[in-house]
């Protein structure tokens, strides 16, 4: 079974403005799809459409040749979405937040896997602090720790490197590299250059219309 994301003839609008139309591409396993485009070109909308949150005005998104919508549970379990917002509760600590995500992803509550995710991201020492007391970059890392809970095939990332320092960016890139190696796929937007990922596995989509 090929774990392939197919976008076909997609059209999205925002506030009566057509962002893009007739957009078609595929993301194969082991491939990283980098969405490029100026502010307001519809990158976030495209990612939200792929994740099923926003309905397209025309066209389809499919996963394994089945419609990729929120009601397709085999699809929603296959991807991890990290959007602009971190999705963290400010008054809970990192561990409590991640344990909640485990429940959402239908995983068994396991504090070990939470610990290992936090350790991989080198943030385990902060796990008992309220999110409120962490820096923007630390919060971002905890949001990205979701990617390491359980296994997933597709990562949908909206500006994952925002407010991360150089060391953390390299760390995340290495994780992406590992994910691609394990036949996972990634679709992301970012303004930071991807330095550690071989350009052979990067597939660039330009969203700017001329």
């Amino acid at each position: 079974m090929s774990k392939q994301l197919t976008i076909q003839g997609l059209q999205c609008e925002r506030g009566e403005r057509v962002l893009f139309s007739d957009l078609s591409f595929t993301v194969e396993p082991g491939q990283l799809c980098h969405l490029n485009g100026a502010n307001g070109s519809g990158k976030t909308t495209l990612l939200r459409t792929i994740a099923g949150y926003t309905l397209p005005y025309a066209g389809t998104v499919s996963w394994n040749e089945k419609p990729a919508t929120l009601s397709n549970s085999s699809y929603t379990q296959a991807y991890r979405y990290v959007g602009h917002q971190n999705g963290l509760k400010k008054s809970l600590n990192a561990r409590e937040n991640l344990e909640f995500f485990q429940q959402l992803y239908g995983l068994n509550a396991s504090s070990d896997s939470v610990t290992s995710a936090l350790e991989t991201l080198k943030i385990n020492d902060k796990s008992q602090l309220s999110i409120r007391d962490l820096s923007q970059g630390q919060q971002r890392k905890i949001a990205l720790a979701r990617l390491l809970l359980g296994s997933s095939d597709l990562w949908i990332l909206d500006e994952p490197f925002t407010s991360l320092d150089l060391a953390s960016r390299n760390l995340i890139e290495n994780l992406m590299q590992q994910h691609l190696h394990q036949e996972g796929s990634i679709i992301l937007t970012t303004h930071h250059p991807l330095v550690n990922i071989p350009s052979g596995s990067i597939h660039v989509i330009e969203l700017d219309r001329e």
């Binding site: 939200r48 994740a51 099923g52 949150y53 929120l70 549970s73 929603t76 379990q77 991807y79 979405y81 959007g83 602009h84 917002q85 971190n86 999705g87 963290l88 509760k89 400010k90 995500f101 429940q103 959402l104 992803y105 239908g106 979701r146």
Partner: peptide, 18 residues
Amino acid sequence: HADGSLDLILSSGSVYQC
């Protein structure tokens, strides 16, 4: 809605329970 966790809830299999 504001902090983005609604996204995660909606794409989880447990919207009803949430």
